[in-house]
Nucleic acid binder design. Structure first.
Lengths: 141, 141
DNA sequence: ACAGGGTCAAACAGATGTGTTTGAGATAAG
DNA sequence: CTTATCTCAAACACATCTGTTTGACCCTGT
């Protein structure tokens, strides 16, 4: 039982996460804390959302803080996306850490859920680090 | 100009982070957004806090989700801390990924700011993964 | 069919966080 | 000294988030 302050989780959320992590059921935790199982469920869900938000926040920050960053609008073809990554990098004299097919595969993996027939379903943010790493940030996962 | 929703940052905070990242001064950003430089400063600070919270959240989660986890109270000596890491790991049949001096150095580095004359200044949470990695979480940095 | 473990949605009071203004410093450079 | 850049604190209206309750619902075994 312990730390929470100065994170995005509340004490209650951490408390429940810990008890649940020890293998207790929601009902057991509920009895122990004197509340209902559906309440535990709700708090657990809230905690998961906060954790996910934290993950996405760091991802966004990494993107925004990249030396190069630009957005590619919804509807753009995958080919044009890959091409624009290279042109932006060239323009700044940075060498992409991947060869073209590698980058293609990499982006396809990351953006799997945001593409439809080789077209972006959402507008995305792209960041390129000095080391030639390519970072992507999307609204929806 | 872009993504923010479903992170711990607000749109305004991202907006300002982006403009600032482009090298603009707080005053320039303030003029552009029609507000004052001290307001920009405040929002920037709030954003930094949120980012820090996000970082700490993920760290906490990694600790809590470790198969073994326990807390070591303030005032405990460094030697006892190292010893208890080993005994907890042994108890669960996990082999720590570091030899004793390595672990000592590792923990000393991480906990530098929380120790005073080989004693913990704060209560800390320790997590040990199945791979024998040792994670530490503290209230203060 | 039933029970056990879990989820979801709506509602509500109370807490926490937001951007903003105003005014007062801090620090470094010219 | 002045100026530019940035920080800090207090206060305020407004917005979002919190834990809770209640009641319904979904799987998966038995």
């Amino acid at each position: 039982m312990t730390s929470a302050e100065s994170t995005t989780l509340t004490e209650r959320q951490v408390e429940i996460l810990e008890l649940r992590e020890q293998g207790q059921t929601q009902q057991e935790v509920a009895d122990r804390l004197g509340t209902t199982d559906s309440n535990i469920s709700a708090i657990e869900r809230a905690a998961e959302q906060n954790i996910e938000k934290a993950r996405r926040t760091l991802e966004l920050v990494r993107t925004v803080r990249s030396p190069i960053q630009f957005s590619v609008s919804s509807g753009t073809s995958f080919d044009k996306l890959v091409a624009s990554v290279y042109s932006h990098a060239d323009e700044a004299g940075i060498k992409i850490a991947y060869c073209r097919p590698e980058l293609y595969t990499h982006l396809y993996g990351v953006l799997e859920e945001c593409t439809n027939q080789n077209e972006l379903k959402t507008t995305i943010d792209v960041g390129i680090t000095n080391e030639g790493e390519v970072r992507v940030f999307t609204e929806d996962f």
